[in-house]
Design a protein around this nucleic acid. Sequence first.
DNA 1: CCAATCTCAGAAGTACTGAAATGG
DNA 2: CCCATTTCAGTATTTCTGAGATTG
Lengths: 154, 154
Amino acid sequence: MASEFEQAPAVLRRLPSRLLAQAAGHAERLVSDRLAEIDAHKWHFAVLAALAEHGPGSQSTLSRRTGIYRSDMVAVLNVLAERGFVERTPDSDDRRRNIVTVTEPGLRRLARLGEVLAESQDELLTPLTTADRTHLVQLLTRIVEHHNAARPWS
Amino acid sequence: MASEFEQAPAVLRRLPSRLLAQAAGHAERLVSDRLAEIDAHKWHFAVLAALAEHGPGSQSTLSRRTGIYRSDMVAVLNVLAERGFVERTPDSDDRRRNIVTVTEPGLRRLARLGEVLAESQDELLTPLTTADRTHLVQLLTRIVEHHNAARPWS
DNA sequence: CCAATCTCAGAAGTACTGAAATGG
DNA sequence: CCCATTTCAGTATTTCTGAGATTG
């Protein structure tokens, strides 16, 4: 009974919003499980990548760049700072701000997280050819950018 | 400042798992908002569609067909039964089970929910051509079915 | 005695709100 | 006095766990 398959209704199986939710759920599970094995979280990758690509920034800038809420950013940075992957130093020009900087160990950590992430993307997209994967990314990008533009950072 | 755009790192913007999460998020918001306007929930559609397509069934069968947890199915059916869209009657062959049946008003409700859902899928997929939409559904289906098969109903 | 079903109470993760504290 | 930033406390939603009660 546990291995017996129940088919979902056809109208449900073909619903784009439901397919997106299911695919996103599988992606989330694959990525989170792999990252958890090395004591990491996808938010860590987002923050480290933002710092590596755009350079140091305040916490609110990081929030806008990563999509992580300012409230939650605090906890993420606490962990990363505790482990020496980032440094939080007060901004001398505007002392409300913290300037967050990535450290050398932080860059090595970023590289490691990137490897694990690449492996899990590969696992996620196993059933697709390289051309398929490119096309999927393009289609999703069109959807996401359209709706992001419609509600600019809400 | 509110309308000022911050670009996410390129490595993040192109990450399939992140694109899926973002697209799924937009889809969820569009669908939920539209359904909320008529006092409905996507789970209502899933249950009514499963009943219409596969006929009456027990709550655990419905759970497997819709992906809604057995625990949560209780609350969903409470609402649908309260409004007269389904009927819950004890199974005389196995009195642990409830047999859930869709009513005539339930079928009309399903049709209405289907309309609203079709409109929101259309809004979601606005930036895609018809051919693109078909292709997207195919790609997502391949991913979802591959990973569903890998962990049969968990 | 064990298994399945329905139900409830609640945990865990994520997204988000509101407000206090500090400073511009 | 108002606005911005960091931080904390807490809400809301969804997914999922565990256990009790009933029945097979």
